[in-house]
Design a protein around this nucleic acid. Structure first.
Lengths: 199, 199
DNA sequence: CCTATCTTGGAATGGTCGTTCCAAGATAGG
DNA sequence: CCTATCTTGGAACGACCATTCCAAGATAGG
């Protein structure tokens, strides 16, 4: 008997991710979401239930669609260290050039906001961190099996290092850091993880 | 002939740094500044000239009083790598425990805000980065002279690595990361920079 | 002590925020 | 086609925002 939705919630969420990512979640008003999506306040609130919930939904979608595929590819990559180097090369390129240049990472950006204290959002930040570190860990484990790693390097802690490094890249890129400097900084760390086999 | 200020601008700025640092700049209203400092809106605007300028002044004071002394001590430290390790140990401790636990770093927090686009503020972010990387660079150069560094490690790019790592620590600590994990991540990078001298 | 000059308290302004509400519209089972 | 039920557009709400303004207060040179 009832009416059905006149819009696709998933498409709306896609626009919301775009807005929150580029302009910042706290700096984006509901009015802007309404203007961009064409969906009225009523429908927005009936579907997502307020700005905090909308932010959480956008974060989940970002993690699922933007981050996770890249993490999965990294974890499944059989090359080891070159896979990690490639991950960072694509990361720096995506953060400094192209469609999303200077946007940073929606999850990283959320870390410093006031919403970080909300349990629902905090959990997503932690899930992102776990996923990122897990992918790094898997790639490092592969590298280990290929004999690419410096002896004595603990895979789990090295994975944490690389995750922290990625946050640094995300952060500085949003403030205008140059791709070359970011990449050089990343490579120095990776070289430190590499087995030394001079001539 | 004229009247003089009935308050100390520097003391006010100290309170403002505290507010912006702990609660976030965008989340802190002028009303809160008025309530905390006891200084009226008129005086605030006459002295600092609006919220953006106040934010910039607070950032400058933070950089000058909080960051720079630590950077200077690091740059002047004669120990080399142990000085850098000590820097990070104190950083993690300050970010995870004590008076400023979970506050992160005011400069790091500003990177993701909407104010990052204002020229005056962007310059302070860059100045902070240059100072941080410079201090790392000086400490690494000392380490080099002490023969502590892995051969082939470029001091300047390694300094960038460590700066990015510090941003990662600042970011994740604000979201509740555990001190032990942060420290382990840092140490893995430092070990990668160290000359290998097994037994 | 007077007065020119700056400072101060606090009210007022116009704007934007997230959220709520309700009448009008759309839908689909009966 | 009717009607129960959900959705939708858009007005309205109160709270807060940064900023401005002005009369009253404080100051120190003359």
């Amino acid at each position: 008997m009832p009416d059905i939705k006149h819009f696709d919630p998933d498409t709306v969420l896609e626009h919301v991710v775009h807005l929150f990512w580029e302009r910042g979640t706290e700096a984006t008003g509901i009015a802007e979401v309404v203007a961009t999506t064409g969906v009225s306040r009523s429908s927005l609130y009936a579907t997502f239930g307020g700005k905090e919930r909308l932010h959480a939904a956008a974060l989940r979608r970002y993690l699922e669609r933007q981050s996770q595929p890249v993490f999965d590819a990294l974890a499944a990559d059989e090359r080891g260290l070159p896979a990690i180097a490639g991950f960072f090369e694509r990361l720096v390129a995506a953060r400094c050039t192209g469609e999303h240049a200077r946007w940073g990472c929606l999850v990283t950006n959320t870390h410093t906001g006031a919403t970080r204290e909300i349990a629902e959002i905090r959990q997503i930040l932690d899930a992102h961190h776990t996923a990122l570190r897990g992918a790094m860990s898997a790639a490092l484990q592969t590298a280990r099996e290929h004999g690419q790693l410096r002896p004595g390097l603990a895979v789990e802690t090295a994975a944490e290092s690389l995750a922290l490094l990625a946050y640094g890249v995300n952060l500085r890129s949003r403030a205008g850091a140059q791709a070359g400097e970011l990449l050089a900084g990343v490579r120095a760390v990776l070289e430190g993880f590499t087995r030394t086999q001079e001539k």
